[in-house]
């Protein structure tokens, strides 16, 4: 009789080799391996199927699986590249790579545009801007009068919409962000450079058995 391997490493569905993901993203192989540990932790938190569901994403972000949030929903939808309602490991790594400190600014600018283009029309429209401001106010319990909200939205549109067609296109967005780089601060996660320190156990044990 032949001798079979007694243990096989069981990966999550949609697992991709770290070397492949590292070649396509800003991460090194060991950083991708460390991200796998984080991915497993999140994807086994509720449904235990090795895929990140929206509730698990909310739990990881807010410590509350039922907390709905417009922006978290948008991020989840953008991470869900295959549009099948869950995030697999490859999607997780490729999407997080946008937030890596070494990723080109243009990529971050484009991602932020898609994030704020709520209805994917190719433009950030006034109504979308207002919806986001209202969502933020609702989340922060900050009270501003309706008039002030309208004024802030109008003023911002006027600032960004340089061709005055009533909506913000990707070129206007890019110009505006170049003048206001602080708008991109949430598009960079310094943690991603220290990820192997945050999750060293995977790197040390290399492959985790189930």
């Amino acid at each position: 009789m032949g001798c079979w391997l007694s243990k096989q490493v069981k990966h999550t569905p949609g697992y991709e080799e770290p070397a492949v993901l590292a070649a396509e993203t800003a991460f090194t192989v060991s950083e991708v391996e460390a991200l796998y540990e984080l991915f497993r932790k999140i994807s086994y938190s509720i449904f235990k199927d090795g895929l990140i569901h929206k509730e698990e994403f909310q739990l990881a972000l807010f410590k509350n699986s039922k907390k709905n949030n417009l922006f978290a929903d948008r991020i989840f939808d953008l991470f869900d590249l295959k549009r099948n309602g869950v995030i697999d490991f490859g999607e997780f790594v490729r999407s997080l790579s946008v937030f890596h400190p070494n990723t080109a600014q243009d990529e971050k600018i484009a991602f932020a545009f898609r994030l704020y283009d709520l209805r994917s029309t190719g433009f950030i429209e006034r109504e979308e801007l207002k919806e986001m401001v209202l969502a933020l106010l609702n989340e922060s319990e900050l009270c501003l009068s309706d008039d002030l909200v309208e004024t802030i939205v109008d003023q911002t549109c006027k600032l960004v919409d340089s061709n005055s067609d009533g909506k913000i296109d990707p070129i206007e967005w890019k110009e505006f962000v170049r003048k206001n780089p602080s708008l991109l601060k949430n598009m960079t996660l310094p943690y991603l450079k220290d990820i192997t320190m945050a999750f060293p156990s995977f790197v040390m044990s290399s492959e985790v058995d189930d």
Partner: peptide, 25 residues
Amino acid sequence: RPALMNAFELISTSQGLNLGTLFEK
């Protein structure tokens, strides 16, 4: 005239846009 808050500056402070919490243990 005092400068008004830029809506995008406000939005970028949203908790839902802070992915850093994913890395908190």
